[in-house]
């Protein structure tokens, strides 16, 4: 591990300016991802700005919905009564992630920014375009069971590992950002990128920009929602495939639908094709099957993850069925 300077920020402006001025500086939240990456020499910042003291951990009801402060801990969000009541899929997604100890430390901002769990990315002895642009992608010809089936490039086939972000994608959340040049808002579905030719860039967040909050728009039918995670063990494993679903149903007809997937792409994957089929259709297995099939039509699996296509299909159907059966 390289030596680094450490400062605790008490003001947002100072935090933003300090990081903006130093290309090698990073914010640190719960540290549950960044410290691991530093220990493995995957990331080597020379300055850490600790943002845990910034007053950004409130969860509050706003006119348009709910605002979650960027420093709110994953566990606090998951067990928040308003979140549990209005956005159960978000609570479920958070609780499906990591372990209680990690969730107690992990922040919402850090969760958005967490990096892929691709084995080769973590191993500095391996080529990896995300870690070292131009070095090649070890996963494409390697062991790629946990990799993407949607939106990958010939430079990188990694997935974004977050559960929370899948729920946020289904909810059309908006990320609030403060930068050196002022504030801006980024819709969650634009926040993470596809790898393309620059897999080293995970998100559209610019260096020095601080995530201050995540806004959840009012979405009454999100009460009828569900997060399903398929994984290799009962807990404490990243998703092979996950699905966040919310349905607005009236008289057996779907009026609005949200379907997002995790574990399948470089970003939380909104299943737009599925949503299009669902809206206006009857609540039944044929509808769900058609939605699932439309989603996986564009899947391009790798050598070791062909199963994800079938798994994704079944997970979508299961998740829709669960929500469809809700009162």
């Amino acid at each position: 591990m390289k030596l680094f300077a450490y400062t605790r920020a008490t003001e947002q402006d100072v935090a933003v300016n300090t990081v903006s001025r130093n290309q090698s500086a990073k914010f640190i939240g719960g540290g549950t991802n960044l410290l691991d990456l530093m220990k493995e020499n995957v990331e080597q910042p020379n300055q850490l700005i600790d943002i845990n003291s910034l007053p950004l951990s409130k969860i509050e009801v706003t006119r348009n919905g709910v605002r979650i402060g960027a420093m709110a801990r994953n566990s606090d969000v998951a067990y928040n009564a308003i979140i549990q009541e209005r956005y159960p899929l978000l609570s479920q997604a958070l609780l499906a992630g990591a372990s209680p100890q990690l969730r107690n430390m992990a922040t919402v901002g850090g969760n958005l920014m967490q990096r892929t769990r691709c084995y080769y990315f973590y191993d500095t002895a391996m080529p990896c375009n995300k870690r070292e642009p131009g070095s090649g992608c070890a996963a494409i010809e390697g062991f790629n069971r946990i990799h993407a089936i949607f939106g990958a490039s010939d430079q990188c086939i990694a997935t974004h590992p977050s559960d929370m972000c899948v729920a946020l994608a289904a909810l059309d959340a908006v990320v609030q950002v403060q930068g050196p040049k002022g504030d801006r808002q980024i819709p969650i579905t634009d926040f993470h990128r596809l790898p393309g030719d620059t897999p080293q860039i995970d998100t559209v967040l610019q260096h020095g920009e601080l995530i201050t909050a995540v806004d959840l728009p009012n979405l009454p039918f999100a009460k009828r929602s569900h997060y399903l995670k398929v994984r290799d063990r009962a807990s404490y494993a990243f998703a092979l495939v996950s699905v966040a679903t919310a349905l607005d149903i009236e008289n057996g007809i779907i009026r609005a639908a949200r379907v997002a997937m995790g574990g399948v792409a470089h970003k939380p994957w909104r299943a737009v094709a599925a949503e299009e089929i669902l809206v206006g259709a009857k609540v039944n297995q044929e509808t769900f099957r058609a939605a699932a099939e439309a989603t996986v039509k564009e899947a391009k699996p790798q050598k070791h993850n062909k199963f994800k296509v079938e798994m994704a299909k079944r997970a979508i159907m299961r998740s829709l069925t669960e929500v469809g059966e809700m009162a």
């Binding site: 391996m126 070890a138 063990r233 807990s235």
Partner: peptide, 28 residues
């Protein structure tokens, strides 16, 4: 759960950490 995978090109154990080498957790 348990399986350590070898990448034949490099000859290394790919999932060489307890995040990816799965052992049972309480919930299992």
């Amino acid at each position: 759960h348990e399986e350590t995978v070898v990448d034949d090109r490099y000859g290394h154990f790919v999932n060489h950490n307890l995040g990816e080498y799965h052992v049972p957790v309480h919930a299992d």
